[in-house]
Simulated assay, not measured.
Amino acid sequence: MVFSRLNISLANHLKPIYVTAHLEGVPFKRILIDGGAAVNVLPAKQMKKLGRGTEDLIPTHLTVSSFSGTITKTLGILPLEVDLGSKQIMLAFFVVDCISTYGALLGRDWIHQSLAVPSTLH
């Protein structure tokens, strides 16, 4: 298939997808959905908004790279309960010390997480 020109209706599909969700009960309005990202990312500034600090992180030696190729060492992993629409799931976020335009980034793994079973069904 060959597209001769990108028309305006196709260009609308190239915009980033932001959603609103609750992380540990705290509302976040600009969570970026990035199906190309391998991990979930939380800026360190947002971790502080949750009342969490470096003592809450699970140590890791993982580095992440951005779309521009910049490599950043993660501060650690922070497991968080995420409420997104009808989904309530526990996700691991890699915390990075960076400036970002989003509150958190959800990579492709969150899509495959199963729904948490409500405690009323146990």
Score class of each variant (00 low, 15 high):
1 M>I: 02
3 F>S: 10
3 F>H: 10
4 S>P: 12
4 S>D: 07
5 R>A: 00
5 R>M: 01
5 R>G: 03
5 R>E: 09
7 N>V: 11
8 I>V: 08
8 I>D: 04
9 S>Q: 03
10 L>W: 07
10 L>D: 09
10 L>K: 11
12 N>M: 08
13 H>K: 02
13 H>G: 02
15 K>E: 03
16 P>I: 10
18 Y>Q: 01
19 V>T: 03
20 T>G: 14
20 T>D: 13
23 L>M: 07
23 L>K: 03
23 L>C: 07
24 E>M: 07
24 E>L: 04
25 G>Y: 10
26 V>I: 11
26 V>N: 02
27 P>W: 02
28 F>A: 03
28 F>L: 08
29 K>N: 09
29 K>L: 10
29 K>E: 11
32 L>H: 03
33 I>V: 04
33 I>E: 00
33 I>G: 00
35 G>E: 00
35 G>P: 00
36 G>Q: 03
36 G>W: 01
37 A>V: 04
37 A>T: 05
38 A>S: 13
38 A>E: 12
39 V>H: 02
40 N>M: 02
42 L>Q: 04
43 P>R: 01
43 P>M: 00
43 P>C: 01
43 P>L: 00
44 A>E: 12
44 A>F: 09
45 K>A: 10
46 Q>F: 02
47 M>P: 01
47 M>H: 01
48 K>I: 07
51 G>P: 04
51 G>Y: 05
51 G>W: 05
52 R>H: 04
53 G>I: 01
54 T>C: 05
55 E>V: 04
56 D>I: 00
58 I>P: 01
58 I>N: 01
58 I>F: 02
58 I>V: 09
59 P>F: 09
59 P>L: 06
60 T>F: 03
60 T>P: 05
60 T>Y: 04
61 H>D: 08
61 H>A: 09
63 T>D: 05
63 T>R: 07
63 T>P: 00
64 V>F: 06
64 V>Q: 04
65 S>E: 05
65 S>Q: 04
67 F>L: 14
68 S>N: 11
68 S>H: 08
70 T>N: 08
71 I>H: 03
72 T>S: 12
72 T>F: 14
72 T>P: 04
73 K>F: 14
74 T>W: 06
75 L>T: 09
77 I>W: 06
77 I>V: 13
78 L>M: 06
79 P>Y: 06
79 P>Q: 10
80 L>H: 02
81 E>Y: 00
82 V>T: 12
83 D>E: 12
85 G>L: 12
87 K>T: 08
87 K>L: 04
87 K>N: 11
89 I>P: 08
90 M>D: 14
91 L>S: 10
92 A>F: 11
93 F>C: 05
93 F>Q: 07
93 F>Y: 14
94 F>S: 07
94 F>N: 11
95 V>S: 11
96 V>G: 06
96 V>L: 09
98 C>S: 13
98 C>V: 15
98 C>L: 12
100 S>V: 12
100 S>Y: 15
101 T>L: 12
103 G>T: 08
104 A>N: 07
105 L>Y: 11
107 G>H: 03
107 G>I: 12
107 G>E: 02
108 R>C: 13
109 D>A: 11
109 D>G: 07
112 H>C: 08
112 H>V: 10
113 Q>M: 09
114 S>D: 15
114 S>F: 13
115 L>M: 14
115 L>F: 15
115 L>G: 12
115 L>R: 14
117 V>R: 14
118 P>S: 12
118 P>D: 10
119 S>H: 12
120 T>P: 09
120 T>C: 15
121 L>R: 15
121 L>A: 14
